[in-house]
Design a protein around this nucleic acid. Structure first.
Lengths: 211, 211
DNA sequence: CTATGTGAATTTATTCACAGCA
DNA sequence: TGCTGTGAATAAATTCACATAG
Protein backbone atom coordinates (compact mmCIF):
# COMPACT_ATOMS: atom_id res chain seq x y z
CA UNK A 1 0.00 0.00 0.00
CA UNK A 2 1.28 3.50 -0.70
CA UNK A 3 0.53 7.14 0.08
CA UNK A 4 -2.82 6.86 1.80
CA UNK A 5 -4.83 9.98 2.45
CA UNK A 6 -5.79 10.70 5.99
CA UNK A 7 -7.60 13.87 6.90
CA UNK A 8 -5.25 14.69 9.72
CA UNK A 9 -3.27 17.88 9.79
CA UNK A 10 0.39 17.15 9.15
CA UNK A 11 2.71 18.90 11.62
CA UNK A 12 5.25 21.30 10.15
CA UNK A 13 7.80 19.57 12.34
CA UNK A 14 7.13 16.34 10.49
CA UNK A 15 7.88 18.02 7.16
CA UNK A 16 11.02 19.51 8.65
CA UNK A 17 12.22 16.03 9.65
CA UNK A 18 11.49 14.23 6.37
CA UNK A 19 14.61 15.61 4.63
CA UNK A 20 16.62 14.45 7.64
CA UNK A 21 15.24 10.94 7.26
CA UNK A 22 16.00 11.03 3.55
CA UNK A 23 19.59 12.05 4.27
CA UNK A 24 19.91 9.22 6.79
CA UNK A 25 18.48 6.69 4.35
CA UNK A 26 20.91 7.69 1.61
CA UNK A 27 23.77 7.45 4.06
CA UNK A 28 22.78 4.00 5.27
CA UNK A 29 22.23 2.91 1.70
CA UNK A 30 25.77 4.01 0.84
CA UNK A 31 26.96 1.91 3.74
CA UNK A 32 25.46 -1.11 2.02
CA UNK A 33 22.25 -1.64 3.97
CA UNK A 34 19.05 -2.66 2.19
CA UNK A 35 16.57 -2.76 5.08
CA UNK A 36 16.35 -0.61 8.17
CA UNK A 37 14.10 -0.52 11.23
CA UNK A 38 12.77 2.67 12.78
CA UNK A 39 15.23 2.02 15.58
CA UNK A 40 18.13 1.70 13.16
CA UNK A 41 17.17 4.85 11.30
CA UNK A 42 16.72 6.64 14.61
CA UNK A 43 20.40 6.10 15.35
CA UNK A 44 21.36 7.59 12.02
CA UNK A 45 19.26 10.71 12.40
CA UNK A 46 19.01 11.38 16.11
CA UNK A 47 15.24 11.13 16.39
CA UNK A 48 13.16 8.87 18.61
CA UNK A 49 11.99 5.73 16.71
CA UNK A 50 8.30 6.20 17.40
CA UNK A 51 8.60 9.76 16.19
CA UNK A 52 9.82 8.36 12.90
CA UNK A 53 7.01 5.83 12.69
CA UNK A 54 4.40 8.44 13.54
CA UNK A 55 5.78 10.89 10.98
CA UNK A 56 5.72 8.27 8.24
CA UNK A 57 2.27 7.05 9.25
CA UNK A 58 0.78 10.36 8.14
CA UNK A 59 1.53 9.40 4.57
CA UNK A 60 1.23 5.64 4.32
CA UNK A 61 2.24 2.21 5.51
CA UNK A 62 5.76 1.96 4.19
CA UNK A 63 7.19 -0.71 6.46
CA UNK A 64 6.83 -4.45 7.02
CA UNK A 65 5.99 -5.55 10.55
CA UNK A 66 8.72 -7.66 12.05
CA UNK A 67 11.15 -6.53 9.34
CA UNK A 68 11.41 -2.76 8.95
CA UNK A 69 11.65 -0.52 5.90
CA UNK A 70 13.15 -1.13 2.48
CA UNK A 71 15.65 1.71 2.25
CA UNK A 72 15.36 2.38 -1.48
CA UNK A 73 11.58 2.27 -1.41
CA UNK A 74 11.23 4.51 1.62
CA UNK A 75 13.66 7.06 0.12
CA UNK A 76 11.58 7.08 -3.05
CA UNK A 77 8.37 7.56 -1.07
CA UNK A 78 9.80 10.46 0.94
CA UNK A 79 11.01 12.12 -2.23
CA UNK A 80 7.49 11.80 -3.59
CA UNK A 81 5.94 13.23 -0.43
CA UNK A 82 8.30 16.21 -0.51
CA UNK A 83 7.59 16.57 -4.25
CA UNK A 84 11.29 16.35 -4.95
CA UNK A 85 10.52 14.20 -7.99
CA UNK A 86 9.34 17.22 -10.00
CA UNK A 87 11.84 19.56 -11.69
CA UNK A 88 11.50 23.20 -10.51
CA UNK A 89 12.85 26.37 -12.01
CA UNK A 90 14.58 28.94 -9.82
CA UNK A 91 16.04 32.42 -10.21
CA UNK A 92 18.77 34.08 -8.22
CA UNK A 93 18.63 37.75 -7.26
CA UNK A 94 21.94 39.27 -6.18
CA UNK A 95 25.09 38.13 -7.97
CA UNK A 96 27.65 39.14 -5.33
CA UNK A 97 29.87 36.83 -3.31
CA UNK A 98 26.98 35.19 -1.51
CA UNK A 99 24.99 34.83 -4.72
CA UNK A 100 27.92 33.18 -6.49
CA UNK A 101 28.40 30.78 -3.62
CA UNK A 102 24.73 29.92 -3.66
CA UNK A 103 24.85 29.31 -7.39
CA UNK A 104 27.77 26.91 -6.93
CA UNK A 105 25.93 24.92 -4.30
CA UNK A 106 25.33 21.39 -5.62
CA UNK A 107 22.21 20.91 -3.48
CA UNK A 108 20.01 22.66 -6.01
CA UNK A 109 20.64 20.05 -8.69
CA UNK A 110 20.28 17.20 -6.25
CA UNK A 111 16.79 18.36 -5.31
CA UNK A 112 15.76 19.05 -8.87
CA UNK A 113 16.05 22.84 -8.79
CA UNK A 114 17.16 24.32 -12.08
CA UNK A 115 18.54 27.84 -11.82
CA UNK A 116 17.49 29.52 -15.05
CA UNK A 117 18.25 33.20 -14.49
CA UNK A 118 20.23 35.61 -12.33
CA UNK A 119 19.65 39.29 -11.61
CA UNK A 120 21.65 42.17 -10.17
CA UNK A 121 21.32 45.93 -9.94
CA UNK A 122 25.02 46.68 -10.50
CA UNK A 123 25.52 47.87 -14.12
CA UNK A 124 29.04 46.46 -14.04
CA UNK A 125 27.70 42.97 -13.52
CA UNK A 126 24.75 43.07 -15.89
CA UNK A 127 25.56 41.30 -19.14
CA UNK A 128 28.28 39.15 -17.62
CA UNK A 129 27.81 35.50 -16.77
CA UNK A 130 28.24 33.43 -13.67
CA UNK A 131 28.29 29.66 -14.11
CA UNK A 132 26.94 30.03 -17.67
CA UNK A 133 23.96 32.04 -16.49
CA UNK A 134 23.77 35.57 -17.88
CA UNK A 135 23.18 38.30 -15.30
CA UNK A 136 20.18 40.42 -16.17
CA UNK A 137 19.06 43.81 -14.92
CA UNK A 138 17.04 43.46 -11.74
CA UNK A 139 14.36 45.72 -13.28
CA UNK A 140 13.39 42.84 -15.53
CA UNK A 141 12.36 40.51 -12.73
CA UNK A 142 8.68 41.20 -13.24
CA UNK A 143 8.91 40.08 -16.85
CA UNK A 144 9.62 36.58 -15.56
CA UNK A 145 5.94 35.93 -15.13
CA UNK A 146 5.56 34.31 -18.53
CA UNK A 147 8.52 32.03 -17.76
CA UNK A 148 6.77 30.26 -14.88
CA UNK A 149 9.38 30.38 -12.13
CA UNK A 150 8.84 28.25 -9.03
CA UNK A 151 11.48 29.53 -6.63
CA UNK A 152 13.13 32.89 -6.00
CA UNK A 153 16.47 32.98 -4.24
CA UNK A 154 17.36 36.24 -2.47
CA UNK A 155 21.04 37.08 -1.94
CA UNK A 156 20.93 40.88 -1.91
CA UNK A 157 21.94 43.29 0.88
CA UNK A 158 19.50 43.33 3.76
CA UNK A 159 18.15 46.77 2.90
CA UNK A 160 16.86 45.52 -0.45
CA UNK A 161 15.62 42.09 0.65
CA UNK A 162 11.96 42.96 1.21
CA UNK A 163 11.71 44.93 -2.03
CA UNK A 164 13.23 41.99 -3.89
CA UNK A 165 10.77 39.62 -2.25
CA UNK A 166 7.86 41.81 -3.34
CA UNK A 167 9.10 41.75 -6.92
CA UNK A 168 9.56 37.99 -6.87
CA UNK A 169 6.01 37.62 -5.62
CA UNK A 170 4.77 39.80 -8.49
CA UNK A 171 6.80 37.62 -10.84
CA UNK A 172 4.75 34.68 -9.62
CA UNK A 173 7.18 32.57 -7.61
CA UNK A 174 5.66 29.94 -5.33
CA UNK A 175 8.40 29.99 -2.69
CA UNK A 176 11.33 32.10 -1.59
CA UNK A 177 14.68 31.08 -0.21
CA UNK A 178 16.10 34.09 1.61
CA UNK A 179 19.81 34.35 2.40
CA UNK A 180 19.62 37.98 3.55
CA UNK A 181 19.86 38.25 7.33
CA UNK A 182 16.36 39.62 7.94
CA UNK A 183 12.75 38.62 8.18
CA UNK A 184 10.74 39.11 5.01
CA UNK A 185 7.00 39.13 4.49
CA UNK A 186 5.03 37.54 1.68
CA UNK A 187 1.42 36.44 1.07
CA UNK A 188 0.51 33.32 3.02
CA UNK A 189 0.36 31.11 -0.07
CA UNK A 190 4.08 31.70 -0.60
CA UNK A 191 6.47 29.71 1.56
CA UNK A 192 9.46 31.72 2.76
CA UNK A 193 12.49 30.08 4.31
CA UNK A 194 15.27 32.29 5.64
CA UNK A 195 18.74 30.87 6.11
CA UNK A 196 20.96 32.83 8.46
CA UNK A 197 23.86 30.93 9.96
CA UNK A 198 24.28 33.65 12.57
CA UNK A 199 21.00 32.58 14.16
CA UNK A 200 22.46 29.16 14.91
CA UNK A 201 25.83 30.51 15.92
CA UNK A 202 24.43 33.04 18.35
CA UNK A 203 22.65 30.51 20.52
CA UNK A 204 25.63 28.24 21.07
CA UNK A 205 27.21 30.20 23.96
CA UNK A 206 23.97 29.92 25.93
CA UNK A 207 24.51 26.18 26.14
CA UNK A 208 28.14 26.39 27.15
CA UNK A 209 28.77 25.93 30.86
CA UNK A 210 30.42 29.00 32.43
CA UNK A 211 33.35 26.75 33.48
CA UNK B 1 15.35 45.44 37.59
CA UNK B 2 17.40 43.02 35.54
CA UNK B 3 17.85 39.30 34.90
CA UNK B 4 15.65 37.82 37.58
CA UNK B 5 15.88 34.14 38.34
CA UNK B 6 12.74 32.13 38.06
CA UNK B 7 12.77 28.42 38.51
CA UNK B 8 10.84 27.76 35.35
CA UNK B 9 12.25 25.65 32.57
CA UNK B 10 13.12 27.82 29.61
CA UNK B 11 11.85 26.43 26.30
CA UNK B 12 14.48 25.66 23.67
CA UNK B 13 12.26 27.50 21.24
CA UNK B 14 12.68 30.65 23.30
CA UNK B 15 16.46 30.39 23.03
CA UNK B 16 16.13 29.81 19.31
CA UNK B 17 14.15 33.03 18.96
CA UNK B 18 16.38 35.29 21.04
CA UNK B 19 18.98 35.72 18.28
CA UNK B 20 16.14 36.62 15.93
CA UNK B 21 14.99 39.34 18.33
CA UNK B 22 18.54 40.60 18.62
CA UNK B 23 18.83 40.80 14.84
CA UNK B 24 15.54 42.70 14.68
CA UNK B 25 16.64 45.11 17.40
CA UNK B 26 19.91 45.90 15.63
CA UNK B 27 18.04 46.46 12.40
CA UNK B 28 15.50 48.80 13.98
CA UNK B 29 18.30 50.60 15.79
CA UNK B 30 20.06 51.16 12.46
CA UNK B 31 16.82 52.64 11.18
CA UNK B 32 17.05 55.26 13.90
CA UNK B 33 14.56 53.98 16.45
CA UNK B 34 15.30 54.23 20.19
CA UNK B 35 12.21 52.57 21.67
CA UNK B 36 10.13 49.69 20.39
CA UNK B 37 6.99 47.92 21.61
CA UNK B 38 6.51 44.17 21.47
CA UNK B 39 4.10 44.86 18.62
CA UNK B 40 6.68 46.89 16.73
CA UNK B 41 9.37 44.27 17.20
CA UNK B 42 6.91 41.58 16.19
CA UNK B 43 6.64 43.20 12.76
CA UNK B 44 10.40 43.19 12.37
CA UNK B 45 10.85 39.55 13.27
CA UNK B 46 7.61 37.81 12.29
CA UNK B 47 6.70 36.56 15.75
CA UNK B 48 3.49 37.15 17.70
CA UNK B 49 3.89 40.05 20.21
CA UNK B 50 2.83 38.08 23.27
CA UNK B 51 5.28 35.39 22.29
CA UNK B 52 8.00 38.00 22.47
CA UNK B 53 6.83 39.28 25.86
CA UNK B 54 6.56 35.77 27.25
CA UNK B 55 10.02 34.84 25.98
CA UNK B 56 11.57 37.91 27.56
CA UNK B 57 9.67 37.44 30.80
CA UNK B 58 11.63 34.27 31.49
CA UNK B 59 14.69 36.42 32.09
CA UNK B 60 13.52 39.70 33.52
CA UNK B 61 11.33 42.79 33.26
CA UNK B 62 13.03 44.66 30.46
CA UNK B 63 10.18 46.91 29.30
CA UNK B 64 8.29 49.95 30.54
CA UNK B 65 4.51 49.62 30.68
CA UNK B 66 2.82 52.05 28.35
CA UNK B 67 6.08 52.68 26.54
CA UNK B 68 7.84 49.54 25.33
CA UNK B 69 11.50 48.55 25.30
CA UNK B 70 14.65 50.62 25.06
CA UNK B 71 16.29 49.09 22.01
CA UNK B 72 19.91 49.46 23.13
CA UNK B 73 19.20 48.16 26.60
CA UNK B 74 17.18 45.17 25.42
CA UNK B 75 19.84 44.24 22.88
CA UNK B 76 22.44 44.37 25.64
CA UNK B 77 20.28 42.19 27.90
CA UNK B 78 19.72 39.58 25.20
CA UNK B 79 23.43 39.47 24.49
CA UNK B 80 23.98 38.85 28.17
CA UNK B 81 21.34 36.11 28.32
CA UNK B 82 22.88 34.36 25.32
CA UNK B 83 26.32 34.85 26.91
CA UNK B 84 27.51 36.62 23.77
CA UNK B 85 29.36 39.12 25.96
CA UNK B 86 32.10 36.59 26.72
CA UNK B 87 34.92 35.94 24.24
CA UNK B 88 35.11 32.27 23.16
CA UNK B 89 37.86 30.40 21.43
CA UNK B 90 37.09 28.14 18.50
CA UNK B 91 38.95 25.72 16.27
CA UNK B 92 38.20 24.67 12.72
CA UNK B 93 38.65 21.10 11.52
CA UNK B 94 38.75 20.67 7.75
CA UNK B 95 40.49 23.34 5.71
CA UNK B 96 38.86 22.64 2.34
CA UNK B 97 36.54 24.91 0.40
CA UNK B 98 33.82 24.77 3.00
CA UNK B 99 36.28 25.30 5.83
CA UNK B 100 37.78 28.34 4.13
CA UNK B 101 34.33 29.80 3.56
CA UNK B 102 33.45 29.21 7.20
CA UNK B 103 36.66 30.88 8.30
CA UNK B 104 35.85 33.94 6.21
CA UNK B 105 32.41 34.28 7.73
CA UNK B 106 32.21 37.55 9.69
CA UNK B 107 29.56 36.23 12.07
CA UNK B 108 32.17 34.59 14.28
CA UNK B 109 33.76 37.89 15.19
CA UNK B 110 30.41 39.57 15.69
CA UNK B 111 29.42 36.98 18.26
CA UNK B 112 32.78 37.00 20.01
CA UNK B 113 34.14 33.77 18.63
CA UNK B 114 37.86 33.81 18.12
CA UNK B 115 39.16 31.14 15.75
CA UNK B 116 42.57 30.21 17.12
CA UNK B 117 43.53 27.07 15.21
CA UNK B 118 42.76 25.05 12.11
CA UNK B 119 43.35 21.37 11.36
CA UNK B 120 43.42 19.16 8.30
CA UNK B 121 44.56 15.63 7.44
CA UNK B 122 45.94 16.50 4.00
CA UNK B 123 49.78 16.68 4.22
CA UNK B 124 49.75 19.21 1.37
CA UNK B 125 47.76 21.64 3.47
CA UNK B 126 49.49 21.14 6.80
CA UNK B 127 51.93 23.96 7.48
CA UNK B 128 50.21 26.41 5.17
CA UNK B 129 48.02 29.22 6.43
CA UNK B 130 44.48 30.30 5.77
CA UNK B 131 43.49 33.75 6.96
CA UNK B 132 46.65 33.98 9.07
CA UNK B 133 45.84 30.77 10.88
CA UNK B 134 48.40 27.97 10.43
CA UNK B 135 46.94 24.61 9.44
CA UNK B 136 48.05 21.89 11.84
CA UNK B 137 47.94 18.12 11.53
CA UNK B 138 44.57 16.75 12.59
CA UNK B 139 46.38 14.22 14.81
CA UNK B 140 47.22 17.06 17.17
CA UNK B 141 43.63 17.94 18.01
CA UNK B 142 43.72 16.12 21.31
CA UNK B 143 46.66 18.22 22.44
CA UNK B 144 44.34 21.21 22.44
CA UNK B 145 43.10 20.32 25.88
CA UNK B 146 45.58 22.59 27.65
CA UNK B 147 44.52 25.46 25.37
CA UNK B 148 40.95 25.56 26.67
CA UNK B 149 38.90 25.62 23.48
CA UNK B 150 35.17 26.39 23.72
CA UNK B 151 33.88 25.56 20.28
CA UNK B 152 34.80 23.01 17.63
CA UNK B 153 33.77 23.64 14.02
CA UNK B 154 33.49 20.59 11.79
CA UNK B 155 33.93 21.04 8.03
CA UNK B 156 35.27 17.64 7.03
CA UNK B 157 33.79 15.08 4.62
CA UNK B 158 30.76 13.30 6.03
CA UNK B 159 32.57 10.01 6.50
CA UNK B 160 34.98 11.62 9.00
CA UNK B 161 32.53 13.87 10.82
CA UNK B 162 31.72 11.58 13.75
CA UNK B 163 35.36 10.69 14.32
CA UNK B 164 36.24 14.38 14.31
CA UNK B 165 33.47 15.10 16.77
CA UNK B 166 34.78 12.41 19.11
CA UNK B 167 38.23 13.95 19.00
CA UNK B 168 36.89 17.43 19.65
CA UNK B 169 35.02 16.06 22.65
CA UNK B 170 38.23 14.54 23.96
CA UNK B 171 39.95 17.87 23.41
CA UNK B 172 37.39 19.37 25.78
CA UNK B 173 35.18 21.57 23.60
CA UNK B 174 31.87 22.68 25.10
CA UNK B 175 29.92 22.88 21.86
CA UNK B 176 30.19 21.76 18.24
CA UNK B 177 29.09 23.50 15.08
CA UNK B 178 28.78 20.84 12.40
CA UNK B 179 28.75 21.76 8.72
CA UNK B 180 29.01 18.15 7.53
CA UNK B 181 25.71 16.89 6.18
CA UNK B 182 25.07 14.24 8.78
CA UNK B 183 23.89 13.70 12.32
CA UNK B 184 26.63 13.45 14.91
CA UNK B 185 26.52 12.21 18.49
CA UNK B 186 28.16 13.70 21.54
CA UNK B 187 27.72 13.51 25.32
CA UNK B 188 24.61 15.36 26.50
CA UNK B 189 26.62 18.15 28.14
CA UNK B 190 27.94 19.17 24.71
CA UNK B 191 25.62 21.17 22.50
CA UNK B 192 25.76 20.16 18.85
CA UNK B 193 24.23 22.28 16.10
CA UNK B 194 24.27 20.95 12.56
CA UNK B 195 23.89 23.35 9.65
CA UNK B 196 22.84 21.76 6.39
CA UNK B 197 21.25 24.07 3.86
CA UNK B 198 19.94 21.07 1.96
CA UNK B 199 17.55 20.34 4.82
CA UNK B 200 15.83 23.69 4.27
CA UNK B 201 15.97 23.43 0.50
CA UNK B 202 14.46 19.97 0.38
CA UNK B 203 11.24 20.92 2.14
CA UNK B 204 10.38 23.88 -0.10
CA UNK B 205 8.72 21.88 -2.90
CA UNK B 206 6.29 20.36 -0.41
CA UNK B 207 4.80 23.80 0.12
CA UNK B 208 4.55 24.68 -3.57
CA UNK B 209 1.09 24.23 -5.05
CA UNK B 210 1.08 21.66 -7.87
CA UNK B 211 -0.32 24.39 -10.19
C1' DC C 1 9.22 -13.10 18.37
C1' DT C 2 10.10 -8.71 16.04
C1' DA C 3 8.94 -4.31 14.52
C1' DT C 4 5.11 -1.52 12.54
C1' DG C 5 1.19 1.67 13.00
C1' DT C 6 -1.67 4.29 15.95
C1' DG C 7 -5.10 5.89 19.55
C1' DA C 8 -4.40 7.74 24.20
C1' DA C 9 -1.60 10.06 27.56
C1' DT C 10 1.70 13.30 28.36
C1' DT C 11 4.67 16.98 27.62
C1' DT C 12 5.82 21.22 25.50
C1' DA C 13 4.76 25.51 23.30
C1' DT C 14 1.63 29.21 21.99
C1' DT C 15 -2.01 32.38 22.57
C1' DC C 16 -5.53 34.55 25.28
C1' DA C 17 -7.04 37.81 28.36
C1' DC C 18 -6.47 40.84 31.83
C1' DA C 19 -4.39 42.89 36.20
C1' DG C 20 -1.27 46.41 37.09
C1' DC C 21 2.09 50.00 36.25
C1' DA C 22 3.80 54.39 33.74
C1' DT D 1 -4.82 55.31 27.96
C1' DG D 2 -1.05 52.13 26.24
C1' DC D 3 1.73 48.49 26.75
C1' DT D 4 4.04 45.15 29.77
C1' DG D 5 4.15 40.81 32.33
C1' DT D 6 1.92 36.60 33.38
C1' DG D 7 -1.37 32.98 35.07
C1' DA D 8 -4.88 30.27 32.66
C1' DA D 9 -6.60 28.21 28.50
C1' DT D 10 -5.59 26.26 24.24
C1' DA D 11 -3.06 24.10 20.71
C1' DA D 12 0.68 21.37 18.99
C1' DA D 13 4.04 17.93 19.25
C1' DT D 14 6.02 13.95 21.41
C1' DT D 15 6.06 9.67 23.67
C1' DC D 16 3.78 5.69 25.57
C1' DA D 17 1.88 1.36 25.15
C1' DC D 18 -0.14 -2.13 22.80
C1' DA D 19 -2.96 -4.47 19.19
C1' DT D 20 -1.69 -6.31 14.92
C1' DA D 21 0.85 -8.26 11.01
C1' DG D 22 4.84 -10.84 9.01
Amino acid sequence: MSVKFKYRRIPDETIRRLPVYLRGLLFSSQMGYKKISSRGLAEFVGVNPCQIRKDLSYFGDFGKRGVGYDIEKLAREIRKILKLDVVRSAVLVGAGNLGSAVLAYPGFKIYNFNIVAAFDSDPKKIGKKIKDIPIEDVCNITKLKRRKIDLGIIAVPRANAQKTADELVKAGVKAILNFSPCYITAPKRIKVVTIDIAMDLARLPYYMPTS
